[in-house]
Design a protein around this nucleic acid. Structure first.
Lengths: 174, 174
DNA sequence: TTCAAATTAGTCATCGTTGACTATTTGCCT
DNA sequence: AGGCAAATAGTCAACGATGACTAATTTGAA
């Protein structure tokens, strides 16, 4: 949750923007870094306003609908830096939904488990290829680091899954 | 959310249990596999009851407080298997909170970023050691797979972070 | 025996997240 | 000129997750 705030404050550090603009930016450039949805962004911006970290005013351009323009305040800047420091020094908690399935492997016939895991392996492979072929548009060093990070984990996952499948196969043959 | 249900149904596949027992099991044996909290388990069990996947009845032993005993139904067993199949074939979505910090690295003086990342590296190292020295109690193959999985990712993360730090250091020297 | 701490068992208000929805404007094709 | 799709801008009800809380019972030590 703190990282949502960090992201929004960080975006506003570059320049004041209205909600739609912020969400568009996230959608088009950061969809591989965060899964935050539009409504979450608006809600989080509201909270940041209440906390005094962000200021909002309405604007109207031509006869387009009203826009809410958000700007970071001095207190907000301080808070941003505090969140950033914490974030950089913190190890992210790793939790894999798929581990829960692994625990119950033996409730399925061995061949079925294997074919399901092989399906997963194929999906993972195509995701990796997708990431590798993604344009290095380089919206700053950071996004590239994030991509790299993602890929490293995906590849580690791939190798691990492969070894699991191998071990299950030999166990089946025995 | 589906994995919460999968976990609870899977536990009930072994035997009917009361809420406290379930939560104790998760706490003592699966805290490294899931971060589900007590209240979430109770709430999820309620939902599983409403859906007809689980049946609940109250029991009283001696003059201890009432207990809610949960048992999986035939429909529940089917649902469990369906969730399991989906879970095994699915790639887990990877999202690192720390990537958001990486994007804003340049808002801090380079030395500070570096020392924060180094702190993270140390934390990660000690977490890895903790995992490596954890007892292989082996509550089934599954938990061991999950541990292994975790470790693989932690180590990949460690190496990546190390290389990031190195690159930032050379960049600083230039 | 008595008092504090731990264990047992679960509830609830609150908060964060999101899918689905509303409503207007602009661009484009025919 | 008419009409449909896409872009623009945001709202809201509903749901999932959880920290904090209640309350009784058992255990252990002084």
């Amino acid at each position: 949750m703190d990282e949502r705030a960090l992201l929004l404050l960080g975006i506003l550090m570059a320049q004041s923007q209205h909600g739609y603009q912020i969400n568009e930016f996230i959608d088009k450039n950061l969809s591989r870094v965060t899964d935050m949805k539009k409504s979450t962004a608006y809600a989080t911006l509201d909270r940041l306003c209440e906390a005094g970290y962000v200021e909002m005013h309405q604007e109207q351009e031509g006869n387009r609908p009203l826009r809410k323009v958000y700007a970071i305040t001095p207190t907000g800047t301080e808070h941003f830096l505090a969140l950033l420091r914490t974030n950089l020094a913190k190890v992210d908690p790793l939790n894999f939904a798929s581990d829960i399935g692994m625990m119950f492997l033996d409730h399925l016939p061995c061949e079925e488990s294997l074919s399901l895991l092989e399906e997963r392996l194929r999906h993972l492979e195509s995701e990796i290829r997708l990431y590798e072929s993604a344009p290095r548009h380089g919206f700053g060093l950071g996004v590239d680091f994030a991509m790299e990070h993602h890929l490293v984990h995906q590849k580690a996952d791939y190798q691990w899954l492969q070894s699991v499948i191998e071990r299950l196969q030999t166990r089946k043959d025995v």
